[in-house]
């Protein structure tokens, strides 16, 4: 039996008359890479913000890591990691200072911080960069560092909000290797992206259109269901019906 890490039932968020997220229901299992797709404005980020305790849902139910988003948002924060598209480390601190700071506020002991940062630096081959300001290292490296910092405290779930935006293909590939390693450790990866080739790398994907989840399954299932050859095609078939757009 698969262990459920995220479970939502009719989760809804309204801003006035606007229904940003419209009664979505889905489950995500332990160690899974769950892709969360949708056009800009489809409600991905709002849904993710609710699941990470940043935004209170209007109605419905959601359990993350066994905790209720309505009543235990602060508890949830201890059990998740988060990395956003807006770069989220402190640029005016060095690599090692960022690691220590985030380790510290997640309540790791000095010994744990030391051990974790050594592992991380070894893994990322960052030996020569630890004393550099984050501002001065290349974007691809920053993003790899940000992911490592987001899972420093070994959360049950890590939320990645368009983590590979603006990164070259080679670095994106390395980044996805890191995502696989993360999932192998048993950390569930919940990732939003608009690179449809990346969707193929996910175990399962959901596609949001106008605040609803219109499709959910493995990439192969979805392609069969929509008789498409690629995720690109699946996405366009679904998105054609969308009423909301960027403008």
């Amino acid at each position: 039996m698969k262990e459920t890490v995220i479970k939502t039932e009719n989760l809804t968020k309204r801003f006035g008359d606007f229904v940003a997220v419209d009664a979505i229901s889905f489950e995500v299992y332990k160690g899974e890479i769950f892709g969360f797709l949708g056009a800009n404005g489809a409600g991905k980020t709002t849904a993710m913000r609710m699941l990470s305790g940043l935004s209170k849902p209007t109605s419905g139910k959601a359990i993350v890591a066994g905790l209720d988003v309505f009543t235990q948002p602060e508890e949830i924060k201890k059990n998740i990691g988060y990395m956003s598209q807006r770069f989220s480390l402190y640029e005016d601190l060095t690599v090692i200072e960022n690691i220590k700071f985030f380790g510290g506020i997640y309540g790791l002991s000095d010994k744990q911080i030391k051990q974790k940062s050594e592992e991380l630096i070894e893994q990322l081959q960052f030996q020569n960069e630890i004393k550099k300001l984050v501002h001065d290292i290349p974007l691809g490296w920053k993003q790899k560092l940000a992911l490592s910092v987001a899972i420093l405290h070994e959360p049950k779930v890590v939320f990645l909000d368009e983590p590979t935006g603006g990164v070259d293909p080679a670095t994106r590939k390395q980044f996805w290797e890191m995502i696989y390693q993360t999932a192998d450790k048993g950390i569930t990866v919940f990732v939003t992206t608009h690179y449809l080739d990346e969707a193929e790398y996910c175990n399962r994907i959901s596609i949001m259109v106008d605040g609803r989840i219109d499709a959910l399954g493995t990439p192969r299932e979805l392609k069969e269901k929509f008789s498409a050859t690629s995720m690109d095609e699946v996405f366009y078939k679904l998105a054609r019906g969308a009423k909301r757009s960027d403008n």
């Binding site: 940043l54 924060k77 988060y82 956003s84």
Partner: peptide
């Protein structure tokens, strides 16, 4: 402005 406050908000920091 930089957006780091979002990162802080998802941590257990009170």
């Amino acid at each position: 402005e930089i957006g780091t406050i979002e990162q802080i908000n998802v941590t257990p920091l009170k």
